[in-house]
Design a protein around this nucleic acid. Structure first.
Lengths: 213, 213
DNA sequence: GTTTAATTTAAACGTTTGTTTAATTTTGGG
DNA sequence: CCCAAAATTAAACAAACGTTTAAATTAAAC
């Protein structure tokens, strides 16, 4: 038994579940799959979490995060310009998504489901709060006559859409960019650098009031 | 029995399967669910398609389309400027995705799956060819000194990411934009107009060589 | 009208699913 | 050392799954 398993079996199961849910989907993963890969007895999952559904809830609660606080602090900051804040936001989200790409896949799957569930509602409400907070950053830039009157919601959709696209369709984009897709780690590293340049440049051009037509 | 069912039972099953796969995922939909909603006997699905997997294949073959031809024709066109072509591409994809949003959800799900399958490979290869063709449009604009030296792949990722985000997370964005989410049709209509303006403006600013730093 | 093929049906097939049980082992405080 | 609580186990549970069967019905051809 490895060290990580000994330290906290519950956390180990969560980690394995995260991997399998991301790779094969919630419905595409059986509790037996999780138990086997985690090297624990099947019944341990019910013992720790109660049910498969509650295992997912536990995962979301464990991973969902501190993001809102980071954006709020950014908003309060008086010394940074709106341009600086945009750059910081881009950097923050690239790092966040690249470090949690598995969890991000699960989130995408979950709030795309039609049937509503407590988990889905939780995820959406968290995401909503974060987006409302980011809106303020852009609104501030517009008030200060730095940013153009862009479609704020769709501008955010473009940023998150780009990130989601690159992470969730790594298969496609690694091939398209001729990056070795067998090594996930280098893909994400190379991609992080390119994403930062691309998103910052695109937003600079898109938001700049001087480019407004 | 409605008219459409009478005309072609096979097509009716495909349509119902498309809806359920989009709403609940492939693994989240049972063949019994499909049979019940389509008002056909359970065994008819095996009879027509052979298996659940082959039903999905049949769906992809039926819906996957004529897109490549459209882009190729656009590329050949000598009278349109690269700027015109970008606008046309945006309009084309918005309409395509909004008219086939259910199928688009299924595609997203499928090529996000880790385990490779013939269907997944088919989808990726089609998408690859289309993206390679779009690359040419941008490359042409760059050759003619109209477009800046942007990250072509990530620029495409931004466009498709925006569309995917808006369609797959309609739940989130309809709420964020305070659009009535109960009426899917009006959501997609309003969103189409906003998407067109947003994407065209953003690409205009992003691609314009005059905004290059 | 008879016959052959295509379609449709209800029932059953064997697996796999999530979950629970009841017995066993391990753990830690008195 | 003992013993109650916690952790772990193998086995079993009923329900749902994708698929197949064999009989019944409908359609088409001659």
């Amino acid at each position: 038994m490895s060290l990580t398993e000994k330290v906290d079996k519950r956390a180990h199961i969560l980690s394995v579940a995260e991997q399998l849910f991301a790779e094969n989907g919630f419905d595409g993963t059986s509790v037996r799959d999780i138990a086997q890969l985690a090297n624990v007895n099947l019944a341990m999952i019910s013992y720790y979490f109660g049910s498969k559904e509650k295992l997912l809830e536990a995962l979301v609660e464990d991973r969902a995060g501190y993001t809102l606080g980071v954006i709020e602090e950014l908003n309060k900051n008086q010394t940074l310009t709106p341009w600086d804040k945009i750059d910081k936001l881009v950097e923050f989200y690239i790092e966040k998504i690249m470090n949690n790409y598995r969890f991000h896949c699960i989130l995408s799957q979950t709030y795309n489901q039609a049937k509503s569930s407590p988990i889905k509602e939780l995820i959406i409400s968290i995401k909503m709060r974060n987006l409302e907070e980011i809106k303020k950053v852009i609104a501030d830039g517009q008030r200060k006559k730095l940013f153009a009157k862009v479609d704020v919601e769709l501008t955010m959709a473009s940023v998150f859409g780009t990130l989601t696209q690159v992470v969730n369709s790594a298969n496609l984009y690694s091939r398209l960019m001729k990056i070795d897709e067998t090594d996930d780690a280098t893909y994400r590293k190379k991609m992080s650098a390119r994403l930062k340049t691309h998103l910052q440049q695109m937003l600079r051009a898109h938001l700049d009031i001087k480019n407004e037509e």
